[in-house]
Design a protein around this nucleic acid. Structure first.
Length: 293
DNA sequence: CACTTGACCTGTCCGC
DNA sequence: TGCGGACAGGTCAAGT
């Protein structure tokens, strides 16, 4: 599922719902989804309360009063859905429709709070995980040490993007954009969307992309990510936010999953190809491979 | 070191 | 309706 805009949408939702709630119990049915020592869970999770919900790259960080954090990666199909204790809040409560729907067969972790509300970690494909880590140690996790800058951070500029992409100068621009050590948070949807915006063929080698195109790409990356956050992310298949609702960016997508439909700029028919081992959507008229001599 | 490919899982869709 | 294969929004570990 989730790239930066989806994870950010979940983060914002959880940050409005969780702080102040204290954990009563946790159950899980899959060791890989919750690879934590029971002794740590008993001491640092049970009884702790949520202080804040943060995000770095595609990783969610639920900070606890015990100075531990739940570090969560949703990978392809992970969901985090919060449900209040029952429907007695009355019609219109955001989670009314979900009461009784969870847990289901893809529920991997169920976190119960003392007030009766629950947080469900659902993950059809079991790639995702929830790890309990000392908050001070979070920056030392392998992934955190290696991950690149946040693309919407004010310190992230066109020059920073260009210079970091050059670390992968002999690979395709799409593979470089997807590389989390180059820049954080971009996945298959927003790579395709921003390369279309910059009119760059995704298979172009980084070294063959002009400085001018790289500047345009920087602008497009930020535009696409900001728009997607505003729209609550993309729900192509599994993604839902903290209230179990889908995001609407897919109806604004220009190329992703639009093969066979006209390019919004030039009406040429969008095609789907394979680049960097991933399904890739392009306008064949506007995104051409440069001729190399 | 840089780069590519397969593996991790379950579910769905598409062609025969 | 069934069956096999390809594919799905992400990362790792291996291989070259």
């Amino acid at each position: 599922m989730p790239e930066l805009p989806e994870v950010e949408t979940v983060r914002a939702g959880l940050d409005a719902l969780l702080p102040g709630r204290s954990v009563a119990s946790v159950t899980y049915n899959n060791e890989k989804s919750f690879p934590n020592a029971p002794s740590d869970v008993n001491v640092f999770l049970i009884g702790a309360s949520v202080t804040a919900v943060k995000r770095r790259a595609k990783v969610l960080l639920i900070e606890l009063s015990s100075d531990y954090s739940l570090v969560i990666h949703l990978k392809m199909t992970g969901q985090l859905v919060f449900i209040a204790r029952d429907t007695r809040f009355g019609a219109g409560h955001p989670n009314d429709s979900l009461v009784g729907q969870l847990p289901d067969k893809s529920t991997r972790v169920e976190l119960s709070f003392k007030d009766g509300s629950k947080l469900f970690f659902n993950d059809q494909r079991k790639f995702g995980w929830v790890r309990l880590v000392p908050t001070a140690e979070v920056p030392n996790i392998d992934f955190m040490r290696k991950v690149g800058p946040e693309p919407l951070d004010p310190a992230f500029t066109a020059e920073v993007l260009a210079s970091r992409l050059q670390r992968r100068k002999n690979t395709s621009i799409k593979a470089a954009l997807l590389d989390q050590t180059v820049v954080a948070g971009i996945g298959n949807i927003y790579a395709d969307e921003s390369l279309w915006g910059a009119k760059i063929h995704p298979a172009t080698l980084v070294r063959d992309v002009s400085n001018q195109k790289l500047r345009t790409l920087f602008t497009e990356v930020q535009y696409v990510l900001r728009l997607a956050i505003e729209k609550g992310g993309s729900s192509d298949r599994n993604y839902v936010n903290a209230e179990g609702k889908k995001g609407s960016y897919m109806s604004f997508a220009r190329v992703f999953r639009r093969e066979g439909l006209p390019c919004p700029r030039c009406d040429a028919i969008i095609i789907k190809i394979r680049v960097a081992g991933r399904g890739t959507h392009i306008c064949p008229r506007e995104q051409k491979l440069p001729k190399i001599h």
